[in-house]
Design a protein around this nucleic acid. Structure first.
Length: 604
DNA sequence: GCGATCAGCT
DNA sequence: CACAGCTGATCGC
């Protein structure tokens, strides 16, 4: 639960996710998503009075959040004050003090947060530096490196402060299985049950919150059915969700709720009380967050908890590793927790967050082109020698970085979180996506892909004595099998990112919307938008409709197994446009060239 | 009567 | 396996 009080020290004239007390005087409001703990005071009478007496104050949020907020009558009074902003469209806003007329300019960019429909992070760029407020988020390892607006000129932007979702920023919550792994397991469980007979039904014991929609949609796709929910109103302009949920009780998959749900299910009756109790066989699945320690395998993502009852892993928040990866990549000057993890204290989480902060001024992190490396160093040295033992270790590529970053821990998986994406390279600087890249850019990529790729290479080319490898392969095979079983009479299943992007023009045909250019002269975002007041516009959550196609998977990846853990993203802040993932053979060639000191810009 | 807060529960 | 949020009791305005 968020305990963020609403204001950031750099920009105290705005309030985020909090609408009471001191926040009553904000010049602008920002809502990251529509969970209640981020909406404190949003319907308070004092705030209503404030809005009525003001002509300038606005609430900025994503178009999906606007829909969700206004789907409740209690929030309808906000309608005239909401300014929906598209994702990844930097927008300048003026923060005007209505008493004095004094104004402050701020550029805000919404970034996908992967927490629930409409959830975003806010990047603020202004006179007091760049500040990132994450709201709640679930991003996988490496996702941050692919977020275009966190980069500039081929590098990570200089971030002063990050106000971060620290829900699981505690080493106890070291890793959480990926979204794809969890959803696949639930799909299997549901499939096995409902295939037994038409009277076998599943009840998903979901908490009253947005965030399970991609699960409902996936189940609807897999089994050509709809999930029974209590209320469709909130999805009325989201056809991709609407087509997989229903208020009709005669379906085998339910996510309906009742105050005494538990009792009903124990009696083999559903919360919606459909059927005659004795006829139905109800399987209860309770999505819950499960976490795993550093050396434990995240394999059991569903656990039997009783007769016809399971818990299934499901998390709206990033794990310790994922948060650490996120912050270690951004290297902000300061980090502030938005949440105190269960069983921890504010002091403890703050202390641990500080360890991810920048240790030296950025000038010390100057990039040294790979050409400056001593050629005598061989690949073996680069990959096997502990950094401490080798004064020429690859950490030396960056002055000061070796000291700034935590030392590599003993390997526990092929993608250890401490294998940092050190060089802060922009996503476009990859050899396979930028064929015209300069040798320096290619070199940059080779460094940027860090040790994890080198380890992958070693895994591909050496006999592997890692105890985990066999299990990993088995896991990959299992997941391939599950992917093979996918497919649906309704077409391609939507992917996770569909629930976090929105096309306000109901573009279902795959055309890309023109991206609104960044315009410092833009005085107010609302004046530029045609659909702001269009009550009948649909908000499509479609595969191809978003205007940030750089998030999309390359088609060639479609048949790959999903990631077995957090090692890669199933959120799909994916490859650079038109890119292809290099094959192990291609990587092997590149690494051999690197080791031999060959010109990397020459094609094979 | 309404809002704020908290305990209890899932 | 710890999220998110509902309900009901209590208190104050």
């Amino acid at each position: 639960m968020s305990s963020f009080a609403g204001r950031m020290k750099e920009y105290p004239n705005i309030s985020l996710d909090c609408f009471d007390r001191d926040n009553l005087h904000a010049r602008a409001y920002f809502l990251s998503h529509c969970h209640k703990d981020h909406m404190r005071g949003i319907k308070g009478p004092k705030l209503k009075r404030r809005l009525r007496s003001s002509s300038r104050v606005k609430l900025y949020c994503s178009p999906v959040s606007k829909e969700l907020l206004l789907s409740s009558r209690k929030h309808l009074f906000w309608e005239q004050y909401i300014v929906p902003l598209e994702l990844e469209s930097p927008t300048q806003i003026s923060l005007v003090d209505e008493a004095s007329g004094e104004s402050e300019e701020l550029v805000v960019t919404l970034l996908p947060a992967g927490h629930c429909p409409g959830s975003v992070m806010f990047l603020f760029e202004g006179r007091r530096g760049n500040v990132l407020y994450t709201g709640d988020f679930r991003l996988a390892l490496g996702d941050v490196a692919r977020m275009e607006h966190l980069h500039s000129g081929g590098r990570v932007k200089d971030i002063q402060s990050v106000y971060v979702d620290s829900t699981f920023f505690d080493p106890r919550f070291y890793q959480i299985p990926s979204r794809e792994t969890c959803v696949s397991a639930i799909v299997r469980l549901v499939g096995d049950w409902i295939a037994r007979s038409a009277l076998h039904v599943v009840w998903l014991n979901c908490k009253a919150a947005y965030g399970y929609e991609y699960l409902f949609t996936r189940l609807g796709q897999e089994f050509n059915t709809r999930v029974h929910v209590d209320n469709l109103l909130m999805f009325r302009r989201m056809p991709e969700i609407l087509s997989y949920v229903t208020c009709e009780r005669r379906t085998q998959i339910h996510a309906c709720r009742h105050r005494k749900s538990q009792q009903y299910v124990h009696g083999n009756r559903l919360p919606c009380a459909c059927g005659t109790g004795a006829d139905l066989r109800v399987l209860s699945i309770k999505p819950s967050t499960m976490w795993f320690g550093e050396r434990t395998h995240a394999s059991d993502v569903v656990i039997k908890s009783g007769n016809d009852a399971f818990r299934a892993c499901f998390s709206f928040h990033s794990s310790y590793c994922e948060v650490k990866d996120f912050l270690s990549y951004l290297q902000p000057v300061q980090v502030f927790p938005n949440v105190v993890p269960m069983g921890s204290t504010l002091a403890e989480v703050t202390r641990m967050l500080r360890m991810t902060c920048r240790k030296r001024p950025r000038d010390d992190l100057a990039y040294k082109p790979l050409g400056l490396l001593k050629r005598r160093r061989r690949l073996a040295t680069l990959t096997t020698a502990p950094p401490d033992a080798d004064p020429d270790s690859d950490d030396d590529l960056f002055d000061g970085l070796a000291a700034a970053l935590p030392k590599k821990l003993p390997r526990t998986s092929r993608h250890h979180p401490d294998e940092h994406r050190a060089p802060r390279a922009a996503p476009q600087a990859t050899p396979h996506t930028a064929p015209h890249a300069t040798p320096e850019e290619n070199s940059l990529w080779l460094v940027a892909r860090d040790r994890s790729d080198i380890n992958n290479f070693m895994d591909c080319t050496e006999s592997n004595d890692d105890d985990d490898s066999e299990e990993d392969e088995q896991s990959d095979r299992d997941q391939t099998k599950w992917l093979g079983q996918r497919g649906s009479p309704c077409g391609e299943p939507p992917k996770w990112e569909d629930f976090f992007t929105v096309d306000s023009q109901n573009n279902l045909n795959g055309q890309r919307q023109a991206r609104r250019p960044f315009s410092p002269a833009l005085s107010g975002p609302s004046s530029e938008r045609e659909d702001d007041d269009d009550d009948v516009a649909d908000f499509s959550l479609s595969l191809s409709a978003s205007d940030h196609s750089w998030q999309k998977r390359d088609a060639s990846e479609a048949d790959e197994p999903p990631p077995s853990s957090q090692s890669s993203s199933d959120f799909d802040v994916a490859c650079t446009p038109d890119s292809k993932r290099p094959t192990p053979e291609q990587l092997a060639r590149l690494y051999r060239k690197l080791a031999d000191g060959d010109d990397l810009s020459c094609p094979d």
